[in-house]
Computed example of a mutant assay.
Amino acid sequence: MEIGDFQPESWIRNFGVKHGHPGWLYVFRNGNRIKVGKTKNIQERRKAARTWIPDIEIVGIKPFWHASYLERAIHIALSDFWVAGEWFDFKGDEFEKDFIETFCDFYDDDINRNSVDFIYWMNSTGMSEMTLEQSQMAMTLPKWREHLGHRNQNQIS
């Protein structure tokens, strides 16, 4: 699917979802680390990922409206597990399994359903509480991570 193939359905407005800025969120795995990012070109992202780490596991790539905003929400919500850049290490925390399973449950080609389901996912896992707190404190993502006690480690992009 190409980014221009996505069409908004009118019913998504009933859930407060606005169409626009389509893209894919992806989750890759390398050993114990998970990379959560966004892209507008899934073929190029897969190719690029294999050049940085040839045996990287592609856990999932799912379409969403406002992918950049949603990626940021996930990064805020997963701040406790942040390592560097877009990389996270759950260090055996049971939430990793839930995060991966639920992300994989999103549809591969239904941007409208995914964008609505994202709201429920964030609320049902408690991840929305982290984003709300960060927003209320009006902190940038780096300041938020610092607030939580994280220090920038070896950079992995």
Rank of each mutant, 00 (worst) to 15 (best):
I56A: 11
D98L: 13
D110H: 11
S79V: 02
L78D: 11
N114C: 05
L78G: 09
S157M: 02
N112V: 05
P63G: 02
D117S: 08
D89G: 08
S68C: 03
D110W: 08
A48H: 13
H150T: 01
L141M: 06
H21C: 10
F64S: 02
M130S: 06
E71A: 01
I42K: 12
Q155C: 09
E133A: 14
N14C: 07
R46G: 01
F88E: 09
T51Y: 06
I56D: 05
Y120W: 10
H66G: 06
I76H: 02
P8W: 15
E9M: 15
P63N: 01
G23I: 15
E44K: 15
G126E: 02
E86A: 01
G126R: 07
K97Q: 10
Q153P: 00
W82F: 12
F90T: 08
M137A: 07
F90K: 08
M122G: 05
F15P: 00
G149N: 11
H150M: 06
W87D: 02
V59N: 07
G126L: 06
K40G: 11
V59C: 08
G23K: 13
G31M: 02
A84Y: 07
A84W: 09
F15S: 08
D93E: 08
H75E: 05
H19T: 15
T131E: 13
W87E: 03
H66I: 11
Y107M: 15
H66F: 01
F106Y: 11
K62D: 03
T131C: 08
V116F: 07
E101V: 14
W121K: 10
F88Q: 09
V83A: 14
T51V: 05
L132T: 15
M1Q: 08
Q7W: 09
F95W: 02
V59M: 08
S135Q: 12
D89S: 05
R29V: 05
G20E: 06
D117E: 15
D108H: 11
F90E: 12
H21R: 13
D5T: 03
G31P: 07
E2Q: 09
D89K: 03
Y120H: 07
K143N: 13
Q7M: 15
R145E: 01
R33H: 11
L132H: 13
F88V: 03
K91N: 13
M137F: 03
P54K: 01
A77K: 02
F15A: 03
N30K: 14
